[in-house]
Amino acid sequence: MRVFPVYAPKLIVKHARIFLTGVIWVKDLGRLEFEKGRFLLPRKSLPKVKQAILELNELIEAQN
Rank of each mutant, 00 (worst) to 15 (best):
M1Y: 00
M1Q: 15
M1G: 15
R2E: 15
R2H: 15
R2L: 15
V3E: 15
V3T: 12
F4N: 00
F4I: 03
F4R: 00
F4P: 01
F4L: 03
P5K: 14
P5A: 13
P5W: 15
P5E: 15
P5M: 15
P5D: 15
V6P: 00
V6C: 15
V6N: 04
V6L: 06
V6D: 04
Y7H: 01
Y7T: 00
Y7E: 01
Y7L: 03
A8E: 09
A8I: 13
A8M: 14
A8T: 13
A8S: 09
A8W: 13
P9T: 03
P9Q: 03
P9R: 03
K10L: 13
K10C: 14
K10I: 12
L11W: 10
L11A: 11
L11R: 08
I12C: 01
I12H: 01
V13F: 03
V13Y: 03
V13N: 02
V13Q: 04
K14F: 09
K14W: 10
K14E: 13
K14L: 12
H15T: 04
H15A: 04
H15V: 07
H15F: 08
A16R: 00
A16F: 02
A16S: 05
A16H: 00
R17F: 10
R17M: 11
R17V: 11
I18H: 14
I18T: 10
I18L: 07
I18A: 06
F19Y: 14
L20R: 08
L20K: 05
T21D: 09
T21I: 08
T21L: 05
G22S: 03
G22W: 01
V23N: 05
V23L: 13
I24F: 04
I24P: 00
I24K: 03
I24S: 01
I24W: 01
W25R: 10
W25T: 05
W25P: 00
W25I: 07
W25M: 11
V26N: 00
V26P: 01
V26I: 09
V26S: 01
V26H: 01
V26A: 02
K27F: 13
K27S: 14
K27V: 14
D28Q: 13
D28S: 13
D28L: 13
D28Y: 14
D28W: 14
L29C: 04
L29G: 00
L29A: 00
G30K: 01
R31F: 09
R31I: 05
E33Y: 15
E33A: 14
E33N: 14
E33T: 15
F34G: 01
F34M: 06
F34L: 05
E35V: 12
K36T: 15
K36A: 11
G37T: 07
R38E: 10
R38S: 08
F39T: 03
F39A: 02
F39Q: 07
F39Y: 04
F39H: 15
L40P: 08
L40D: 04
L41F: 08
L41A: 09
P42T: 09
R43M: 06
R43S: 07
K44L: 06
K44W: 08
S45W: 12
S45N: 11
S45E: 09
L46S: 14
L46I: 13
L46M: 11
P47A: 14
P47R: 14
P47H: 10
P47N: 11
P47F: 10
P47Y: 09
P47D: 08
P47W: 11
K48G: 06
K48F: 05
K48A: 08
V49H: 06
V49S: 04
V49W: 02
V49R: 06
V49I: 15
K50N: 06
K50C: 09
K50I: 05
K50W: 10
Q51L: 12
Q51Y: 10
Q51C: 11
Q51W: 11
Q51H: 12
Q51P: 03
A52T: 06
A52Q: 03
A52W: 02
L54S: 09
L54C: 09
E55H: 08
E55A: 07
E55Q: 09
L56A: 00
L56M: 08
L56Y: 00
L56R: 01
N57E: 03
N57R: 02
N57C: 04
N57Q: 03
N57T: 03
E58I: 07
E58S: 11
E58H: 09
E58L: 14
L59H: 06
L59T: 05
L59N: 04
I60R: 03
I60F: 08
I60E: 03
I60C: 06
I60L: 10
E61M: 10
A62R: 09
Q63Y: 08
N64T: 11
N64S: 12
N64F: 04
